[in-house]
Structures are given as C-alpha cells and as structure tokens.
Computed example of a mutant assay.
Amino acid sequence: MGKRGPKTEAGLAAVSQAAKQWDHSAWTRNPKAVEAIEIARRLRKTKHGLYASVPIICKGQGCPYAHSCPLVEMDKAPYGEKCPIEIAALEDLFHRYCEHFGIDPDNPKPSDTVDLMMIKDLVDADIALLRCDNKMAWDADYIIHNTVGMTEEGERITKQELHPLTEYKEKLIARKNKTFQLLNSTRKDKEGMKLTVTHDPSERAAEMLKVLQDMKEIEATEEERKQKYLDRSSSMMKETVTKDTIEVEPIDYSEEE
C-alpha cells in the first residue's frame, strides 16, 4: 500500500483538484498560496488538526525541559520535530475526554463542535500543567529569593516568595475548572433542548387530558366515600336514639285522690 496523506503526490493532486472548488480570491490569487490553503484545510480537518500547534519543537539538550525528558536521557529526542512526549499526552488526553463526554473522535457530529473546542482548551491547560511539572522537577524548590533592593555596601536585599510557576499552575487549574463548568452547562442546555423538542404538542395535550380525567375520577370516588360515611353516621345515630329511649306508663293522678 502506498503512502497516504496531504503531503504525498496523491494528496497534493487531490488538494489541487479540491482547490478548484473553493474560492480563495478573498485571501490570495497566487496558485501556490491557494494550494497551501487547501493543504492547511485538510490538515485542520484531521482528528488532531486543532492541536497541530500545541506541541513544542524538540531542541534536544537545548530544551528547557531536557533535564526531565526521558527521550533526551535515552538519546532518542527527535531534534527539530514536535515533542513526542507532548504528542503522546495530547492524544491520550483527547481520547479520554472524548470518551468521558460521549464524543466519537473519529466521527464527531456537528453538534459536538462546541464541546470539542472546550476539550481543546482542557488539553491545552493539561499540556501547560505538564510543562510546569517538568520545570518544577528540575527547579524543585517552591520558594525563591527575589532581589528587592541593595544595601549601601552593595549587598542584595532578598525576599522569599513562592515560585511563579505555583501561581501559574493555580491559574491553569482554575481555567480547567471553569471549562468543566462550561462543558457541563452546555450539555445540560442540550438536554433541555432535546426535552423541549421531543415533547409533541398532541402528546402533551393527551397527557393533560388524562390528568384531568384522573382528577375527576378521584373527586367522584371521594364524593362517593363521603356520602357513604354520612349515610352510615346517620344510621348509627338513629339506632342509638332508639336504644336509649325508655318507654314508661303515664301516671294517673286521679286514682291517688
């Protein structure tokens, strides 16, 4: 099987053909520039196209994170290429977030666009946190001594402060938490929209009619029970009056005289 991709001969031919179908005159009329725009479009539409500019370029021993890079230690760092450590972390985080939020990374729906943009923000923050951790792995001490002045003898006056990376990490974590909240709120909004759409007016009317009928049946049953109770109470009162009545003969006072 031959090589595939936008940079191969077949890919470039496909790009050239596709370029004819798009009007890039608003940007440029240079054929090479138009072709480059099409290549950029194809790259952007790939699964990880949005993250193409996130990984740093490997500088080998000159990398600011070289002291904590296992590839530099193994002499496997690809100088001049994008950082494999960050690419691996990026792909892993992207797939984990997609799985968590129920998004198919290989076949995303148009309705997933906002979620994917927010996931990118999460991944960006995670990569930045990874860089902070790699930097702190070498610096180690969270307390630094900042020079705030000089004495008359020329000696430095220092002040102990937290490492700037600690504050930066706090901002990144706050940014992640805010993005999580936005993701949850947008998904709740989507669910609310689905509920609104899925309720058909006729079904809703039928449900309300059934509720009214049920209420009438309940009222009729209660009225019947009430009437039975009143009838039974009246009957019991009559029986009580009959039992408590004492029959006596009238006194004839004429006989006593």
Results as ranks from 00 to 15, higher is better:
79 Y>E: 11
110 P>H: 08
210 K>G: 03
47 K>S: 00
257 E>A: 10
225 R>D: 07
182 L>C: 03
124 D>K: 06
215 M>G: 04
186 T>P: 01
104 D>Y: 09
255 E>W: 05
62 G>W: 03
103 I>A: 05
40 A>L: 02
8 T>I: 06
155 E>F: 15
184 N>K: 15
128 A>H: 08
139 D>E: 15
221 T>E: 13
118 M>I: 09
99 E>S: 15
151 T>V: 08
174 A>N: 13
199 H>I: 10
179 T>Y: 03
118 M>D: 09
192 G>I: 08
32 K>L: 12
68 S>Q: 06
168 Y>Q: 08
35 E>F: 02
1 M>N: 02
133 D>Q: 14
10 A>H: 09
130 L>Q: 12
18 A>I: 05
85 I>E: 02
15 V>W: 00
158 T>F: 09
113 T>W: 01
103 I>H: 05
31 P>Q: 10
176 K>I: 09
94 F>L: 02
1 M>S: 11
36 A>I: 02
192 G>C: 04
114 V>S: 07
160 Q>E: 15
177 N>H: 14
31 P>E: 10
57 I>S: 06
257 E>W: 12
128 A>C: 03
174 A>T: 05
229 Y>N: 09
129 L>E: 07
205 A>S: 13
36 A>R: 10
97 Y>S: 00
59 K>Q: 15
60 G>S: 04
87 I>N: 01
107 N>F: 12
227 Q>D: 06
255 E>H: 07
179 T>R: 03
90 L>S: 01
107 N>Q: 11
21 Q>Y: 07
41 R>G: 02
119 I>P: 02
197 V>G: 01
74 M>S: 06
191 E>F: 11
5 G>I: 06
141 D>R: 15
116 L>C: 05
72 V>M: 03
109 K>R: 15
237 M>L: 14
89 A>F: 08
142 Y>D: 06
2 G>N: 09
177 N>Y: 03
214 D>G: 05
231 D>I: 05
67 H>M: 10
